[in-house]
Design a protein around this nucleic acid. Structure first.
Lengths: 217, 217, 217, 217
DNA sequence: CATGAATGAGTTTTCATTCAT
DNA sequence: TATGAATGAAAACTCATTCAT
């Protein structure tokens, strides 16, 4: 189009929003078809711009993936730190809260899409996995581990190993999502996250086995 | 490579183990670089045969992937069913045994490679995921769920939800492996599966929290 | 070629005639070596573009073949219908005219190439043959058959079978071309189409045999 | 019969018949799918022998094609020459006989298969076409042309051009078969060769047009 | 003689990236 | 800035031919 010198462009060149639109498009498509099976042309089409324009904002297809992870990751680790800082004292209410927040977040496909893509591309692009590890896992996990360690120190928790316990805490939620999203193994009644979290918390609080002596809450 | 110094025989004869050699090569490469990034030519080279020969045994690249999963899957589901049948009565010893066996199995990269690849290709080849679901998950999970349900009925376990509880049981092991294998998040001291399982079992047996009235060790 | 001596422009710009250039190249090569023996790479080279560019205009090699037939076919059936409509009344002049036009057209290798290719690919790509049949034969033949039927009705022609007579009309021209183009059986004196048509018309007008009574024109 | 001294082996090693079986298989498959689309493996399978065995009798795939043509061609040209020699004097009965024989022969798919294949492969293997030309066309056509020339000399035929007239004679039959076999253009009532030949002969004998002075039915 | 496993060149097709406009 | 035509380097797959057995 040669409409270069049009005065008062009714349609602004929203140049600044462009990269985000590209990322939105990529998120959708990578989530649907995977990174390898998504072409740059499709991303461009989905974003409503030309193929060439994509390369104005990202030097390569892989850079889009990195940008995607980067964008998704920043707020997450921030929130995780907040929550950890928030919780002092009562882990009996803090842990359920944390677990609930995480479960609900992961339940949003838009949010789950990023770790899923990272999981997907980790083998082929280890730097993506490394980045995710550094930006998310290594930020959020120590925070929760600290909470657990404090709980142990305070005597609120039994003398468990914090570094392992976080896996006992989070693992069930993660595997529940993976089973459903990746393998289509959904419980009868649907992916009922509350049901999972409630049952899991029940076990964490009261143990799995019936106490020898006998009467639970 | 294990190539003996045979005088370059242009035609080696059917080892009859050929398909398995192709699968071994594919397992290695898929595990290293992912399915999409591995070319049939590379598989052939790794297997020590020509590109064309691969197509003598597998009609397509995807068929190699399927063969891989099939080969890995058959013994696993068989063993899982055995173990479940074996365990009657004392879940206090059966569950730790099952968890230990699974953890140890997953710890072998040769074994973990297949679920990892499946996880990887699930998005792009849902029939692989479906096959794995049908051949492994839907075989093994109900068996363990049955065990849990029996334990509840017998009063050995607290009245938990078996379908959710299996996730509380297995999730920590799975995430521990994923964290390490995929993201390189390994605890100080290495991927110590015994440490994880022991801590997890401790929580399952005794709960996470200090009992209200009580004094634990 | 019409390549100007431009200083090796890596990217020539869309001539907009590109698809036609590809078809021209394909026509030449298919005619020379047949469809199966012509690679897309060769077509691209002949057209002066890259292999990939061919796929910008045609989704597959077969689509090129189809495009070729389509392009050649449209004007032909149109012209045939015109001519049929034109001729009323005097078949003694109309038939020679039609035959002459067809013979001359077929004599142009550019025109004959397409039916030849179709003949060639009919076995392996029946939809090509079907398309040609629907677009050319089923359009043109009924028109001529109608002419013949009218001639019979009007008493201008003897009571012949129009559907068979069109074969007596056209067959000699077609076989003359095939003999020459395909088998290299050319009469002494060259492929003299006028000589063929004149002799054929002579037979049609006067019969092959000497009339019983005796004296011809 | 030279098979005199075979000691009646119940299972003869029909080694001599093998090449013919290969040719039979090839004839079937080439006719069905074309030369290019038929693999040597398929020919071997159809012939009931191994791929390698094919190469015991024919040095290459193309040699099979040549063998096919050679085998089909020899008897044809022989018969044509016989018939031409047979006919002296009365062309009014000889020509219809010849036309009838040829039409009937071509109507047998087994017989038509070879010229069809030749037509098909002529572009890509001109030596096949050349061979067919030399062995069939250049043998049979001059014979018939001679007949025509004699007829003219004798005054039985009008003073036509023999070399062109053979095309007027045969063309309609050939095109009738091609239209039906290749393009699926079959007259209502089926490929009725007698109907075609009768109509064609009627035209040859009596002309197409109503005689000027005359009174036809 | 006969087999069929093995080869590897060659084919079609895709797509990340470039660059003239 | 923005476009999208053009590139060309792979990749999956086929198959005529060879040769150890």
């Amino acid at each position: 189009m040669t409409d270069a010198d049009s005065p008062t462009p009714k349609f602004r060149r929203r140049a600044d929003a462009r990269p985000d639109e590209v990322l939105d498009a990529a998120l959708t498509l990578f989530g649907q078809k995977g990174y390898a099976a998504t072409s740059v042309a499709e991303i461009a089409r989905e974003a409503g711009i030309s193929k060439g324009a994509v390369y104005l904002y990202f030097p390569s297809k892989q850079a889009i993936l990195e940008g995607l992870v980067k964008r998704a990751v920043t707020p997450i680790s921030a929130r995780a730190l907040e929550q950890a800082a928030l919780a002092h004292g009562d882990l009996r209410t803090a842990l359920p809260a944390i677990l609930g927040v995480i479960a609900e977040a992961m339940n949003d496909p838009k949010v789950f899409a990023v770790p899923r893509i990272v999981l997907h591309e980790a083998v082929v692009a280890p730097e993506i996995a490394a980045f995710y590890r550094d930006a998310v896992l290594n930020m959020a996990m120590p925070a929760v581990e600290g909470l657990i360690a404090q709980g142990v120190a305070r005597g609120e928790l039994r003398p468990v190993d914090p570094e392992m316990t976080i896996r006992s805490l989070m693992g069930p939620v993660v595997i529940h999502i993976i089973l459903s999203e990746v393998f289509g193994v959904t419980p009868k009644g649907g992916l009922d996250l509350k049901r999972l979290v409630d049952n899991h918390l029940d076990i964490l609080l009261n143990g799995l086995f019936t106490p020898p002596g006998g009467d639970n809450a």
